[in-house]
């Protein structure tokens, strides 16, 4: 598919918008429907589209695989650490009110951060799912030999 001109062009135009939309969903979740999870899915989908159209090799060059794997962890870490921060600042685990002097501002900050964590993990899991499936095709037969050992 790499050589399909129209597709390439459409994708090149579309993908930035998808990413933009993902960011919108990410940070607008407080006011309308949406949030980290949906944003992560959309972001992931945008990237997967890139991978499908430009080939996974190119996609891997944009985002190296180990980095994606790390990012899946980073999201969880971020979420947990926000919770721990609440704990260290004198509240309970996941208590955002104590993050900032003003409890509502603290809640805002906390929600923003954890939604970000959700988004990061979801997006990177989606991308790694894609890579996993995409790569697997190439060693289908070889794998079946390994399995019988």
């Amino acid at each position: 598919m790499q050589h399909h001109l129209v597709l390439n062009l459409v994708a090149k135009i579309l993908i930035p918008f998808i990413i933009l939309f993902a960011l919108y969903v990410q940070f607008h979740g407080d006011y309308g429907p949406g949030g980290g999870f949906q944003a992560g899915v959309i972001f992931g989908a945008g990237f997967i589209l890139y991978g499908i159209i430009f080939g996974k090799d190119l996609a891997v060059r944009v985002v190296p695989l180990p980095l994606v794997y790390c990012m899946t962890a980073v999201g969880v870490l971020l979420y947990t650490l926000v919770g721990v921060a609440g704990m260290l600042l004198g509240g309970e685990f996941l208590n955002y009110s104590v993050l900032l002097p003003d409890s509502i501002a603290g809640q805002h900050l906390g929600i923003l951060l954890i939604e970000l964590g959700v988004g990061i993990t979801v997006a990177s899991v989606m991308i790694s799912l894609f890579f996993s499936y995409a790569q697997y095709t190439h060693r289908d037969e070889q794998q079946s030999d390994n399995q019988d050992r």
Binding site: C70, A73, V74, V76, L77, T80, V84, M87, F93
Partner: peptide, 17 residues
């Protein structure tokens, strides 16, 4: 009680890293 969850929950992603 919270630590019981937090500790392994922090450790799991660290293992991935």
């Amino acid at each position: 009680s919270a630590l019981q969850i937090i500790l392994p929950l922090l450790a799991a992603p660290l293992c991935t890293i």
